[in-house]
Structure formats: structure tokens, C-alpha cells
Amino acid sequence: MKVESSFLLGVATFFGIIAISYWFTAYEDGGATMLVGVTALGFLPGSYYYFWHRRFKGYKYFFWGKLDHVVGTRPEDRSDATIADGAGVINSFPGSSVWPFCLGVGAFTLLLAFVFGAWLALVGVSLILTALVGVTAESRRGGRH
């Protein structure tokens, strides 16, 4: 996770510097706000990944709270990992599902309602709610694949 966290923290550092220098040269609030937003975009996940990077190294928190055993890095972060090291459940991948389509049509209809009239929103919202219920139930059940 080290490269991932450095990558995102690099985003935060760069845009932090740019935001400060932009604010003190341009005095323009719109752009400075957006640059601060980008800084946060890099900092929040970046520090989260850094936290996990330290956890793999055996720290409960960033630099303190030593754990009993070191977990070690993930196989995809080790340059000498064999394919067998990654054996096991990678993730659960839902199979085919009709709900994304339903949700997409619902969003399409809902936004059309802003142009062509509010009655379309009824269709759109019902489709979206149906899809949300459907996708949640499918996740709990496991779905067909």
C-alpha cells in the first residue's frame, strides 16, 4: 500500500502547495476553493492507505501501538510473490444483474422530468427505488451468477 498512499499523498501535497501559492498570488476564491477540495481528495484516501501500510508493518496506528505480529505486505505489493501466494478468495463478484439497468433507466427518466414535466419523475423515482431495493436484496441473497 506504500506506493498507493504515496501517490495520493503526493496529490495532496502538490495541490496543497498550489492552493496556497494560488491564494496568495491570485486572491481568487473560486479557484482556491477547488484546489483545497483537490487537496482533500488526495489527503483523505491517501492517509487511509498510509494507515493500512503502517498496519501491515505492525503498528496499530500510524506510528504507535506496536502489534504482536507483523502481517506483512499484500502479495501484490511484494516483488517476489508467487501466484500461489494470492490463492484464496479475492473478492465476491456479483454475476449478472438487471438492477443497474433499472437504476440507469430510472435516473434517465428522473432527469428527463426536469425537461418534459414532473409526471416523468413518478416513473423515474419508482424505478430507482425498485432498483435500490432489488440490488440490496440481491447483495444479501448473493444473486444469480
Binding site: G86, F93, S96, R144, H145
Partner: peptide
């Protein structure tokens, strides 16, 4: 119910190939 992927070492046969289940045609 969900698919479990086990990466295999080169040279070993893959015992349980995952086939695509579900709909065909337009529904796919």
C-alpha cells in the same frame, strides 16, 4: 452463490473453469 477466484500456478490444470451462467441474447 458468488464466484470465488483462485489464481493457479502455471502448468496446473484448472479444475473448475468458471462458465458464464445466466441470460443469453439481448438479456445478456
Amino acid at each position: 452463490m458468488t464466484d470465488v477466484i483462485v489464481p493457479q500456478v502455471v502448468g496446473e490444470d484448472y479444475a473448475h473453469p468458471h462458465e458464464e451462467h445466466g441470460a443469453t441474447g439481448l438479456m445478456k
